[in-house]
C-alpha cells in the first residue's frame, strides 16, 4: 500500500514542489520560519502536525493564495513570487484542491458542480461535457447522485463529489485539506482508497494535510511533521513511527501533555484563583 506508485511520465525522485527557507508572518505573528519542504513527483506526501501549526497555511502558500514573507516556493517549475494573477491561474489549472468541507457550490447540483471547471475553461459541446462528468462521478462512485443538491449529501459524499470536481480537468497535483475530518470509518476508508487510487491511476502527485496518524500511516509514501513553524521530522510513516524525539513521540502516540503543552500559556493558577492575578 505504501509503495511508491509513480506512473509513466513522472520522474521518480524529482520534486514537483519545493519550499526553501520559507518564512511567513501574519499580524506580527510568525507562522513559519525557515521551512524547507520538498514534494516528490508521483507520490502521496502527508503534512502532519498539531492543530494550529499552520498546515492549512502551508497549503495556501503552495497554491499561491498567500505569499511567503521570505524564501522561495516553486511549484511545477514556477516561482510563485514571480507570477501575476493570470500566471497563477494558469498554474492552478494544473492543480486540484479538495477543501475540508468540500466547498461545493451550493446553488448547483452535483453534476453541475463537477462540470463547473469544464464549462469555465473550455467550449466543449454538452455531449462531451456530459461524458467527462459521468466518468469522473463514476470513478468516485456517485454517478447515481448526479442530480442531488449539495445539501442532500453526507460529509463523505460531498468530499467525493469535490474530488470528482478536482480531477475533472486532469490536474498534475492534487491537494487535500484534512480529507478525513469528521468522517465515519466507512466514509474514511472510501476517501482513503480514492486518494490512493486517484494518485496512482492518474499519475498525480498528492499532498495530504491531516493529523490522522493512523490513516496517514496506511496512505502516505512520505510525511512531514510540522511544529513551531518548522519541520521537526520527516520520512516514511514507518520512520516517523520509530522516531524517538519527544515531540514526535507525543504526536504519533496521541499523548495529551508533553513538549506541546496541554495548557495554553496563562498566569499562575493559584494566584489567579485567589484573586490577585486579575480576571482573564
Amino acid at each position: 500500500m505504501n509503495a511508491s506508485n509513480a506512473m509513466a511520465g513522472a520522474t521518480p525522485g524529482e520534486a514537483i514542489a519545493r519550499l526553501t527557507d520559507v518564512a511567513y508572518t501574519v499580524g506580527g505573528r510568525s507562522i513559519f520560519d525557515g521551512l524547507d519542504i520538498s514534494i516528490e513527483r508521483g507520490k502521496v506526501t502527508a503534512i502532519m502536525g498539531p492543530s494550529g501549526t499552520g498546515k492549512t497555511t502551508l497549503l495556501r502558500l503552495i497554491t499561491g493564495q498567500i505569499h511567503a514573507s521570505r524564501g522561495s516556493v516553486i511549484v511545477d517549475g514556477e516561482d510563485l513570487s514571480r507570477l501575476d494573477r493570470e500566471g497563477m491561474y494558469r498554474l492552478r489549472r494544473r492543480m486540484g484542491m479538495l477543501f475540508q468541507n468540500g466547498a461545493l457550490l451550493t446553488d448547483l447540483d452535483v453534476y453541475e458542480n463537477v462540470a463547473f471547471p469544464v464549462r469555465e475553461h473550455t467550449d466543449l459541446p454538452e455531449e462531451l461535457i456530459s461524458r467527462i462528468v459521468l466518468m469522473k462521478l463514476q470513478s468516485v462512485g456517485l454517478r447515481g447522485a448526479a442530480r442531488l443538491r449539495p445539501s442532500e449529501l453526507s460529509g463523505g459524499m460531498a468530499r467525493r463529489v469535490a474530488l470528482a470536481r478536482a480531477i475533472v480537468m486532469d490536474p498534475k497535483i492534487l491537494i487535500y485539506d484534512e480529507p478525513f475530518a469528521g468522517l465515519d470509518p466507512i466514509a474514511m476508508g472510501v476517501v482513503m482508497r480514492l486518494i490512493r487510487e486517484t494518485n496512482d491511476a492518474l499519475g498525480l502527485t498528492s499532498i495530504v494535510v491531516s493529523h490522522d496518524v493512523h490513516e496517514i500511516g496506511r496512505l502516505a509514501d512520505f510525511a512531514y511533521l510540522l511544529s513551531g513553524g518548522k519541520v521537526i521530522a520527516s520520512g516514511t510513516p514507518a520512520e516517523l513511527a520509530a522516531n524517538q524525539a519527544p515531540v514526535v513521540r507525543q504526536f504519533m502516540g496521541g499523548e495529551a501533555d508533553g513538549p506541546v503543552p496541554f495548557h495554553y500559556p496563562a498566569p499562575d493558577y493559584a494566584t489567579q484563583l485567589l484573586g490577585t492575578g486579575g480576571n482573564p
Binding site: 494573477r85 489549472r93 466547498a103 469555465e120
Partner: peptide
C-alpha cells in the same frame, strides 16, 4: 456565505476569478 464556506476559495483554486464569475 460563499466566502465563509470556502466556495470563493474553491473557485480561485479552479482558476476561476470569483469577482468575474
Amino acid at each position: 456565505l460563499m466566502s465563509a464556506t470556502d466556495q470563493l476559495s474553491a473557485m480561485e483554486m479552479m482558476a476561476v476569478d470569483p469577482i468575474r464569475r
